[in-house]
Design a protein around this nucleic acid. Structure first.
Length: 455
RNA sequence: GGAGGGAUGGCCGAGUGGACGAUGGCAACGGUCUUGAAAACCGUAGUGGGCUUUGCUCACCGGGGGUUCGAAUCCCUCUCCCUCCGCCA
């Protein structure tokens, strides 16, 4: 969510900025809603002030009245309270009358307040709905363009593109032949786009996961989080997945539970509604989770193999930072994803996503793609984004500056580190031998019980 | 799944319709004292919104709604936590 003050103060600039990402959010409508909201607030708060004042007076009257009534009771019981019963009776009646009369004005004001409150609720709800759809403002360095064809693709780095003196096979041939990948039985269990990893295949995936977690924890200084995989919808909203991607989420039919589409959703919410100390920042989390996506949109796309499924595993890095350090953090996280690619011996390349291709919470996104020799494609294994204060404002994550003063909203960043299926594809296809066996990269062997070749 | 008990400021904990944004304690910060520290004493301290912004005001006692002139306090509802029973890997 954007800062409403930004829209209020620089509406034309905001319009220009979101136009850079081809977004049509109703800024004017938001502006009008915000104006009306403040109008109502001013009126309703003034009325409330009057009611509060009147109520305090009534409180005083009621206090006196109670005392008089007590005196009256005692006088009626024959005690001497300094005044005759009749005089007390008269005073009580007068007080009661005064009190009733004093209630009239605030009662009337109350009715008006209720009306205004109802309108305020409507205005705020509409405003909030509109605000939820406004994307983050792209960073000035983000290439402008309506779609992925405007992404800036940097030169390949890392290992050279592998050359073979035989025809390299795609993983959907290699895996089943080695009996480490089973498509038929995956389909039997869950339908198309599901598969089984088997034997050394399953072990290889575990090995990669453990290897990546170790690197991020030991070398990159992340703290591992094992989050719930099903979470409440509010977590999706703060992370920016809702309302936009409702159709892509697996949901519980009876309860407000949703399956994570990415660990980012859980990690965004670890510190929801918290005020952190600046000294705690940056907070760096890494989580391994399965990810569940309906992928309705992509029916018919990437159907072969394990490249795109409804369930996949991912190791995800996440950071909470100060506003001043978030862009440096983005560069670091990109590099941390690259470190994995380097360690696994992949040819890879970095992309800077265009304004029309970055997620709407992000201001700048790098993708990292690795080369897969069998299917002959660059495959996206990581996406690193700086969401600045967009998610943190929704999640209400703030920090107290070290030098004191007002609390500020943190910045959040996420980067896959990395997504498993594509890593598995690259491992299988790039390290295949003429006989169909697969060489296990050095870095993974300790995690494979010393297995050097899967055959 | 059933029955009961809870949720109050950073933490603990009072408050069951009227001066309460909230007693008290601990922790924190500033000061006095001290060579320094501790102790003691004094003082400051929450978050957010609005405005005509050295200030005024509104809201916030788990969330939402209601009763009332007035709600931390009463009613409804939801969530979470605890205890007991049942069930289960």
């Amino acid at each position: 969510m954007l800062d409403i003050n930004l829209i209020r103060e620089k509406p034309e600039w905001v319009k220009e900025q979101i136009a850079r990402r081809y977004d049509q959010s109703p800024i004017d409508e938001i502006l009008a809603g915000d104006g009306r909201r403040r109008e109502i607030l001013q009126e309703v708060e003034e009325l409330r002030r009057q009611v509060n004042e009147a109520s305090k007076q009534i409180g005083r009257v009621m206090g006196t009245l109670k005392k008089l009534e007590a005196d009256l009771q005692r006088a009626e019981a024959g005690q001497d309270v300094g005044q005759p019963v009749e005089a007390l009776r008269t005073q009580v009646l007068a007080m009661q009358f005064n009190a009733e009369e004093a209630k009239e004005k605030p009662r009337e004001l109350g009715e008006r307040i209720t009306e205004l409150d109802d309108e305020l609720r409507e205005v705020e709800e509409a405003l909030r709905k509109n605000m939820l759809w406004v994307p983050n403002i792209p960073h000035e360095s983000t290439p402008v363009g309506p779609d992925e064809s405007f992404n800036v693709i940097h030169e390949p780095q890392g290992a050279p593109i592998p050359q073979f003196d035989f025809e390299p096979k795609p993983h959907w041939d290699l895996g089943p032949a080695l009996n480490i990948l089973d498509f038929e039985r995956g389909v039997k269990l869950s339908g198309s786009r599901f598969y089984l990893l088997k034997g050394a295949g399953a072990r290889l995936q575990h090995a990669v996961i453990q290897f990546m977690l170790d690197m991020h924890v030991q070398k990159h200084g992340y703290t591992e989080i094992y989050p719930p995989f099903i979470v409440r919808s509010v977590n999706f909203e703060t992370a920016g997945q809702l309302p936009k991607f409702y159709d892509n989420i697996y949901r519980d039919a009876e309860e407000d539970f949703m399956l994570l589409g990415t660990a980012e959703i859980a990690l965004t919410n670890v510190h929801r509604d918290e005020i952190l100390e600046e000294a705690e920042l940056p907070i760096k989390y890494v989580a391994y989770t399965p990810c569940f996506r309906r992928e309705k949109m992509s029916a018919g796309k990437d159907v072969r193999g394990i490249k795109r499924g409804h369930q996949f595993d991912k190791v995800e890095m996440y950071r909470y930072t100060t506003p001043e350090t978030s862009f440096a953090a983005l560069e670091e996280m990109k590099q941390e994803a690259i470190d994995i690619c380097e360690a696994l011996g992949f040819p890879y390349r970095v992309l800077e996503l265009a304004t029309g291709d970055i997620s709407y919470a992000s201001v700048k996104t790098y993708d990292i793609e690795v080369w897969a020799a069998g299917c002959g494609e660059w495959l996206e294994v990581s996406s690193a984004s700086n969401c600045t204060d967009f998610q943190a404002r929704r999640a209400n994550v703030k920090y107290r500056p070290a030098e004191g003063g007002k609390t500020r909203i943190v910045h959040t960043l996420n980067a896959s580190g990395l997504a498993l299926p594509r890593v598995m594809i690259a491992l299988m296809e790039n390290n295949q031998q003429a006989d169909g066996s697969i060489v296990v990269p050095e870095a993974l062997r300790p995690y494979m019980g010393g297995i050097e070749v899967i055959r």
